[in-house]
Amino acid sequence: MHNFGVYWRSLRSRIMVFDAPLAIIIFLILSCGVVTLYSAGIDFPGRLEDQLRNIVVSFVIMWIVANIPPRTLMRFAIPIYTFGVALLIAVAVFGMVKKGSRRWINVGIVIQPSEMMKIATPLMLAWYFQKKEGALHFKDFVIATVILGVPVGLIARQPDLGTALLVVAAGFTVIFLAGLSWKVLLSIVAFIAVVTPTVIWPYLLHDYQKDRVLTMLDPTRDPLGKGFHIIQSTIAVGSGGLTGKGLLKGTQAHLEFIPERTTDFIFAVFSEEFGFIGNAVLVTLYFLLIVRCLMIAANAPTMFSRLLAGSVSMIFFTYAFVNMGMVSGILPVVGVPLPFLSYGGTALVTLGMAAGIMMSVQRNRKLVQT
C-alpha cells in the first residue's frame, strides 16, 4: 500500500506539470484562435479539424518537454544545435524550393529546419553562458555572437527574414541577459543605424524585401499590387469599430480581400469581427502571457534556466508584436504567425515546446524549493 502511494504521487507529479496560470492563458488564446479560425477557414474544409489536431499534438509536446528537467535540456543543447545547423546547410545545398524560397527538406517527411532553431539557438547560448558563469570576458560575447550568427545567416539566405528575426530576438535576449554591457549594446545599435542605409539596404536586402519596406511606408504606391494586401488588412482592422461586426460577418475576410486569412493575417479577421474590445482582450492575454513568462524567468534557480526562460519570453513577444504590427501596417510583412491563434502545425509545435520549457523551469524551481 505504501509503495502504491509513492507510485501514485510520482505519477501525479508527472501528469500535473502544467503551470496553472500559464496553461490557462494559453488555453484562452487558443480558444480565441479556434473561434476565429472557424470563421476565417469556413471556405477551407478540414482546416478547423486539422488545427484541433495540431493543438492536441502541441499539448502533448508541451507535456513531454515540461517533464524534462532543465539540467537534462542543457545536455541536449550541443547535439540539437549541431543537428539543426547541419539541416540548414543541407537545405542550402539540396533543399526544396517553394514560392521562391529554399526552406524545406525532404527526409521522408517534409520539414522546415529553421523552425527548430528558434529553440535550439537560445538553448545553445544558454548552455554556453552557464558553462562560463562567473568568468565571462568580452571574447565570450564574441563567440556567442558567432553561435547566433551562423543559423541566422543560413536562414536569412533562404531567404526567410521572419524566422531569422525571431531567432535573432531569442538569441540576442540570451546574450543581453548574460551581462552584455549597455555601452556595447548602444554601440551595436549605432553601428546598425550606420550600415543599414549604406550596406544592408543596397547590398544585402533582396528586391522583394525592399518592396515590403517601401510598401509599408506607402501602400498606395501600388494599391492594386504589392500594397493591396496591407491596405485590405488595415481596412479590416479599422472597420471592426468598437464591438466588431460579429462572428462570420466580416466582409473583408469572407469576400476574400484578406490574404492568408487563416495564417499570417488571422488578426485582421479577428479585429474585423470582434472590434476594439476583442483586440483589447487579446492584447491583454498576450501581455499576461509575457508577464507570466518573465516572472518564471526572474525566479529561475540557475543561470541556464533564467536565460532560456528569458529568451522564450522574447519569442512570444516578438511573434505577437511583429504579426500585429505587420497586419496593422506599421511593420513590413515578414510572414510571422500570431502565436496560438494562427493556423499551422509547425508553428504550434514550436510554441508548444517553448511553453513546455517555461513549465519545466517553473516545475524545477518548485522541486528545488521543496
Rank of each mutant, 00 (worst) to 15 (best):
S181F: 09
A40I: 04
K98M: 12
A135H: 13
Q51M: 05
P113H: 10
M353R: 03
A144P: 07
S305L: 05
P202S: 02
I61G: 07
V146D: 09
R9F: 06
L22R: 00
R71S: 14
N323D: 06
L338H: 01
A126C: 02
S101P: 12
V56Y: 10
S187D: 03
L154M: 07
G33P: 06
R47H: 11
S271L: 09
T173D: 04
S101W: 01
A156F: 01
T262W: 02
D211E: 14
N54G: 10
A40T: 07
S114P: 05
G162R: 05
Q112G: 13
G246T: 00
D218W: 07
G329T: 03
T234C: 01
I277L: 12
L154N: 05
M96T: 14
T263S: 10
Q130N: 15
F265E: 13
F304G: 05
Y203F: 05
P113Q: 12
D207T: 07
L180P: 07
V322A: 04
E273T: 02
T196P: 13
L217I: 01
G108L: 14
E272S: 07
P151C: 08
V283E: 14
V93W: 12
G275K: 14
P113E: 09
A170N: 06
I64G: 09
I188Y: 14
F316K: 00
M295H: 06
V195S: 03
F287I: 15
L294M: 14
V146M: 12
G171K: 15
T198Q: 12
P301H: 13
D218Q: 01
T243Q: 10
R53H: 10
P70N: 06
S239C: 01
S58A: 15
A347T: 03
D160W: 00
N54Q: 11
V107S: 04
T243N: 04
R261H: 05
T145M: 12
G352M: 03
P301A: 12
I143H: 07
Y319M: 04
P197E: 05
I200V: 11
V91T: 11
V184N: 11
F265Q: 10
V56N: 08
T173K: 08
M124W: 00
M359V: 12
A268T: 13
K118L: 12
L214V: 00
R102E: 09
L285W: 04
I266K: 04
S31M: 15
R306E: 07
P113L: 03
F191I: 11
